[in-house]
């Protein structure tokens, strides 16, 4: 039974791995260029599934505030959550001070002190990221400490106010929205190339293309897999 639970907990990840392996296999082992592009799509989509699986929170809902929750949060959060950065930094670049206060230390070269602070207790497994570790994590970055304490406090208050509402993690969704667009852009350029290759070579099978290129390069096909009716070098 535990094994089954373990398997169900990781099912998404294992499927991601399987899909990724299939996509990669199509790309490497199949010779038709269109099929290669489809393999790349499968490969990339599997990564989307992985990212989205990371962001899912059990019992959660889509990261869109319910109307009443938004109202509550806006009223509540207004008094202690200033726009980040506006307070301390002003506009533009800041010089990272390599030695001084914690905030700069985060971004500075001397990360050691903070790294020590933020490290979770020895032996704390990731699965059970304990309260303490979470608090340490939140205290480390340069978002002013009060701000964070405030956020944590707000979280506690809100947890009381809206106990049932759990939202899934929005960040992976944002990343994958970008990645999907990148994927389609790659597909478009790849397919345009394939059309050109077809026009220039008369084929989109990789072995025939390699043979034609070999003929152009050496004047003959060095590999054993020679092709009977190859339009040599055009």
């Amino acid at each position: 039974m535990d094994l089954l639970a373990f398997a169900i907990e990781r099912y998404n990840y294992w499927i991601f791995i399987t899909l990724m392996m299939m996509g990669l296999f199509i790309v490497i082992a199949r010779g038709n260029l269109i099929k290669k592009m489809i393999g790349l799509n499968v490969f990339q989509t599997s990564v989307f599934i992985y990212y989205i699986s990371i962001g899912k929170i059990a019992g959660g809902t889509a990261p869109i505030y319910l109307p009443e929750d938004l109202k509550a949060r806006m009223a509540h959060g207004g008094d202690h959550a200033p726009l980040p950065g506006k307070d301390a930094i002003g506009a533009g670049a800041i010089r990272v001070d390599e030695s001084l206060h914690g905030g700069a230390g985060f971004a500075g070269n001397d990360l050691q002190s903070l790294a020590g602070k933020a490290a979770p207790p020895e032996g704390a497994a990731l699965h059970s990221a304990p309260e303490g570790a979470a608090n340490d994590i939140l205290a480390a970055p340069p978002l002013t400490i009060e701000d964070h304490a405030g956020a944590a406090g707000a979280a506690a208050d809100l947890a009381k106010a809206a106990a049932e509402i759990v939202y899934s993690n929005p960040l992976p969704h944002v990343l994958i929205l970008t990645a999907i667009v990148v994927g389609i852009a790659t597909t478009a350029v790849g397919l345009a190339l394939i059309v050109r290759i077809r026009e220039a070579y008369g084929t989109i099978e990789e072995d025939e293309l390699e043979a034609a290129d070999d003929i152009a390069e050496f004047g003959y096909v060095p590999s054993k897999r020679g092709l009977p009716e190859q339009r040599a070098g055009a």
Binding site: I57, A58, G60, G77, A155, N169, P170, P172
Partner: peptide, 21 residues
């Protein structure tokens, strides 16, 4: 899968949920 205390879900992602409103 779905662990709300996982580092990915309890850190920056949660901060975005807190601050956006």
């Amino acid at each position: 899968f779905g662990d709300p205390a996982a580092p990915a879900n309890s850190y920056i992602g949660a901060v975005y949920m807190e601050r956006t409103a």
